[in-house]
Amino acid sequence: MFKRKEREAPRKLTEFFRLAEGRKIQDGAGAGSRSASSTAQTNNNPTPSSGESHINDNPLSSSPFCSPVKQKRRIGEGGGNEDEAEAAGNEMDESSTQAEQLDAFPTSGQPIIDTTMKEMLQTLRGALQSDMAMFMNNTKREISAISNRVEYVENKMEEFTLAHNELVDAHFEVEDEIRAMRLKMADVEDRARRNNVKFRGIPETVKPAEITTYLQKLMMTVLPSLSPADITIDRAHRLPKPSFLPEQLPRDVIARIHFYHIKDQLMRFARQHPSLPDPYAGIALYADLSQATLSARHNLVPITKILRNNKILYKWGFPAKLLVEMNNESHAITSIEKGLDLL
């Protein structure tokens, strides 16, 4: 910016001289017209007034180097034509401050002394300093406005950051609560189904009204020590067939055993004997569990395979987890990573 101002200094000085030369030409033209008018008035009026004689006799009145301000003052003092004086005064009032400053400097027809050059340079320096001060003030105002805007944006960003952090913390808390609620719901649903047993493989020829009797006979065959009161079944019916089962396989039957300990004995027998005695050899028994528990147990299938291959006893807990005893210590496995670390 300063280099640009330094390059503009000689150009401004040149403009000063050009304006001064133009002022000289205008002053010369004005002096010629006034001289012609004065000659005409002299011929018409042989005895001019003292004021007119003063204007005509003054050699500086028509000088091109005399400033318009001085000419205006002399015209007023001489008591000449009032209209011309008023017109000249209006023209002088319309001139700029820069033109008035140039009137004090010599034109190209006069020699430039050191003092005059110094004054011209000081005037140029003052103009440059004024421009620089104006530019710096504008720049400071703009920087101040930008600084205020940046400070406002920073404050807003700080508020947004705090609000975002609060939302993230609340989000994590809600996720933990939702996870706990899902586990609780799955546990409640599994407890409501704990007396249910799924039978897969019962022929479709067994009518719905005959399902309860068919299941009671199966229980008496598997557990002959039971009494008729122990094999009470609250209700039993068929389920819609899942899409992953073969088409020829009959629909599953779900039954609610009235006594939980009887249901537990029945499931224990099914785990110990892969095949039931005739005529129920093709029937399999499964626990009735919620979908959330089934998904969690399916994720732990690789761990159960390792436990069976190593002949390590385990059982399922609620919510879905594996309860394993190793080296006289009980362990709960809730994920594959934890199971692999344990094994």
Rank of each mutant, 00 (worst) to 15 (best):
Y286H: 10
F2D: 14
T139F: 09
E86I: 10
E189G: 05
R308P: 01
I231F: 02
M92P: 01
N43S: 09
D131P: 02
E175N: 12
P274E: 14
D278K: 05
I336D: 13
N195K: 14
S147L: 01
G32D: 01
R191Q: 10
A133D: 14
N81W: 05
M117H: 01
Q122S: 12
I112Q: 13
G51A: 08
F16Y: 07
M120C: 14
G28I: 03
M92V: 03
D264P: 04
G201K: 07
M134R: 13
E6F: 11
I254Q: 15
E6D: 12
H298E: 12
N45R: 11
D93F: 03
K263A: 14
S53I: 08
D103R: 01
T212D: 11
N165M: 13
N328H: 07
P228D: 04
M219G: 00
Q265T: 07
D103Q: 05
G78C: 10
F135D: 15
E154F: 01
A255H: 02
T304C: 12
T39W: 03
R194D: 04
V168Y: 05
A186C: 12
E154P: 06
R194W: 02
G79E: 05
T221N: 13
V168T: 06
G109P: 02
R34F: 14
T97S: 08
R73W: 06
P277H: 05
I336S: 15
F199R: 07
N90E: 09
T161C: 03
F172G: 02
F244L: 07
F160T: 05
D234L: 04
Y314G: 05
E15Y: 01
M134G: 08
R235A: 04
